[in-house]
Design a protein around this nucleic acid. Structure first.
Lengths: 163, 163
DNA sequence: GTTAAATATTATAATGATTACAAAAATGAG
DNA sequence: CTCATTTTTGTAATCATTATAATATTTAAC
């Protein structure tokens, strides 16, 4: 039963194959970005983990492997990736900039219980008027509770229904 | 021709009737919020102007009429309105919290030229999976150029197409 | 491979929006 | 009116991010 649900709900899907540093290096070069080591590692984290991390999460993780890395380096490189438009910035939550290396059109769901950000597929979206407007960015951001956090909070949820 | 286009594109629609302070006072009381004077004025600005202002924009405007008002008061009351869920917070842009007293489901378009935020009607939205997720907030945020800023930038736009 | 020029990284200071705090003012109940 | 509660004020503190200047690394030319 649970297994079935899990199969239906595609959470945090990791890519089928992880990118090697060589592939990332090639990719960055193609985009006119010099593939320095720290830069490669920041992009590697984004593209292979796909957890929509904050700058600080990336910093904390990379610091374990590269103790000399500086927080500013992470910020600098994320800013560069945004300028070169190979990653997008998520403002799901105020004061919590997150980064996503997947650029195809999809939405995001942030669980207010566990803090995770999930990708959401968008089948269709129809807006009532936008003629003559030039749309350069689209963001669909949802917030709420994921199934497991919802389960954990069931009591409160039922309380809410009554009171 | 232009008139026709304007008629079709409903920008920044002001409400048909403006709310009086009395009506706002009643409304806040209904919501369990004591209608202090500064509080009324902050809500009045949100509900009658509907420009999705930042806290600072509200502060700057109200200061003209109420020189003694404090920036903290504006922030305090906006926070209260959010807690009581009579306004929503917009994170269209990082480090630019905006407030909206319209709670019905609609999107937002921020013009990167003039900075204005327009309401966007949503006719339909279909997500590919969200069973068992409890959605508490939905935000659709667009960015780009509004028709007049687009016109002003036409040269650059055409340059972009060629280069 | 050396050297010079350009770029990247580092550590730290600065910024800016927002929040916290404590004192003063305003409001409401009795 | 008087006391208790709430609101407002002004300022200090916070926190994520950016700016800065010095150092290190990389690249290209020779």
């Amino acid at each position: 039963m649970i297994t079935k649900m899990r199969a239906k709900t595609k959470l945090r899907k990791k890519p089928d194959k992880l990118w090697s540093l060589d592939e990332i290096s090639q990719f960055l070069s193609q985009q006119g970005i010099r593939p320095s080591f720290h830069r490669l590692k920041v992009f590697e984290y984004l593209i292979n983990e796909r957890t929509h991390p904050t700058a600080d999460e990336i910093y904390e993780v990379l610091k374990k492997e590269i103790p000399a890395i500086s927080r500013a380096t992470v910020y600098n490189n994320l800013r560069l990736f945004l300028e070169k438009q190979i990653v997008q910035l998520l403002n799901v939550e105020k004061n919590e900039a997150r980064y996503d290396a997947t650029l195809s059109w999809h939405g995001h769901f942030k669980c207010l219980g566990c803090g995770q950000v999930y990708d959401v597929g968008i089948e269709s979206l129809k807006l009532s008027w936008l003629d003559n407007y030039q749309v350069l960015e689209k963001h669909l951001d949802l917030k709420g509770l994921c199934p497991s956090c919802r389960e954990r909070n069931k009591f409160k949820e039922q309380e809410g229904l009554n009171g």
